[in-house]
Amino acid sequence: MYDFNYHRPKSIDEALSALSSASDGKLMGGGQTLLPTLKQRLASPSDVVDLSAISELSGITEQGGAIVIGAGTCHAEVAGNASVQSKIPALAALAEGIGDPQVRNRGTIGGSIANNDPAADYPAALVGLGATVKTNMREVAADDFFTGMFETALADDEIVTAVSFPVPEKAGYAKFPNPASRYAIVGVMASKGPAGVRVAVTGAGQGGVFRVSAMETALAGHFSAEALTGVSVPADDLNADLHASAEYRAHLVGVMAKRAVDAAG
């Protein structure tokens, strides 16, 4: 790791101030992606701004028909939260399947979505449930937030503060993990609720999370796994790596989508 100046601001304003005064500053949520990257010397920020001490970023609340999760909330808290478990069990289950227990104790929802790894679980949750991302500047619909592999709509001085999930009628998540890294080879969130019928896929797309409109149309008619029979995604634009070819991923999207719908009950 190259050395850097470390900041641990107590407020978003302090964080923005530390970031703006740095020549090449980097925000850190739980650090579960950033620190391994720095250890491999694949980045050399002048300053690291640790957001973990900002109390306004933590916490899970019910607001109207939505569950609002502070950006600094770690995966284990989401998985174990009673509101999430009762209102959006698919989200709790998704959080419970991220990484491993130690990663879940540190990794945060804000850090995960700001990083937008194409194989991360949370992007599927946000898009698949029609969530809204709240930042220090604005609110962004999940559909507009994830703009490509490791790319988001966030500006350089924009910090995710919370994610608001509308409570769905039903939702399910099914993941086929990479056996080594436990990232999603394919993960599908399917839901029906205030945001309509949604099917969001992570792990498979080269550009990160994407929706499958053909599946959404099929499920809008009847929200059941059988409705997805014969509906497939083309392999052309899907990821290929050691663990799964694009063709296999395309097949898994179909299988996982059915399982997600089944899990939604």
């Binding site: 990479n178 056996p179 080594a180 890294s181 990232y183 050691l242 663990h243």
Partner: peptide, 28 residues
């Protein structure tokens, strides 16, 4: 079932970390 060391044709090790070389875990 899980482990394989893979080099590409140019001799680069593609399974060069525990993220790609699958060691059996307790749940396997």
């Amino acid at each position: 079932l899980y482990e394989q060391c893979v080099y590409d044709d140019d001799g680069q090790l593609l399974t060069g970390s525990l993220m790609d070389y699958c060691m059996p875990r307790a749940d396997n």
